[in-house]
Design a protein around this nucleic acid. Sequence first.
DNA 1: CGCTGATTTCACAATTTTGTGAAGCTTCGG
DNA 2: CCGAAGCTTCACAAAATTGTGAAATCAGCG
Lengths: 158, 158
Amino acid sequence: MPGRRDNQEIEHFVERFAQVLVDSGMPRIASRIAITIMTTDEGRLTAAELAERLHASPAAISGGVRYLTQVGIAQRGRDRGSRRDHYAIQDDWLYQTIAQRDSILARWSSGLHDGARAVGEDTPAGRRFAESVEFFEFLRKEMEGVLDRWEDHRRSRA
Amino acid sequence: MPGRRDNQEIEHFVERFAQVLVDSGMPRIASRIAITIMTTDEGRLTAAELAERLHASPAAISGGVRYLTQVGIAQRGRDRGSRRDHYAIQDDWLYQTIAQRDSILARWSSGLHDGARAVGEDTPAGRRFAESVEFFEFLRKEMEGVLDRWEDHRRSRA
DNA sequence: CGCTGATTTCACAATTTTGTGAAGCTTCGG
DNA sequence: CCGAAGCTTCACAAAATTGTGAAATCAGCG
């Protein structure tokens, strides 16, 4: 029967793509949780469902969702009449994650600025640092534009 | 005496900025090596000099420079008449590092594409994945433009 | 209120990462 | 060729990360 969900294939996908996110610095359990939720049509799961699908302990789920809610990727919620929390991700959480990279670029930029000061702005090494600062500042400005254009693109498609 | 190199301040800077790179996924020792070389006016150091400045073993240096040369950040070289290799970084190694992110975006994109297939392209979850694929493909195209504009900007300034 | 199920916290175990010391290999100069 | 300096490799130790089990806490319902 085509169109039937193949849970084993989904599990495989989750583990594989989780590694991609882990390589980008997201904690493993948080990556697995976020992707697993993303594979559901509703975009939400309870802690117990997550524990079952991921073969992980409630403690691990607890830690993972804490991370995800703190960085704004997931929100906790609870249905009326239920005792279980559920966790939902925004449809555009990957976009949000990329958008938040601006603060990372800022960190690089200011770090490099410190480098220029440390070695002396008027030295060859200092000029090398200054050049890098410029590059990262350029990047930050450009990324703004890129994200704006994506918004336009997306809206114009709807 | 102003303009004198303050080695202790430079050491502090190296360790601090190394953490920034580590958070972006670069191995610690490689980060420290790359930044230390960057703080020299010549843009190059020998393995022995690196070991001394970083208080690290020759083995650690060996592993670090192997990483750096493999990813194209540093090149090994040797002066005529010397027995020591030295390691140099490109002035634009940070630019190169960012430019290489394209392959990372590609990995995300293809991973998300797999996700759409795994859950079924015609499901709500599948559409969510498809949207993300589009976003990352958009990003890849835009980044090309951004880097080109940086090149122009840089050239026009020289 | 007190019971029950859900979630969090905490100490610890398993795993992974990272760097060291020592031995081995390579290369160059004599 | 030989000696020595420099570099690499390998087995292991130290440290950090990550997830578990069990106990504690919390929340809603009767």
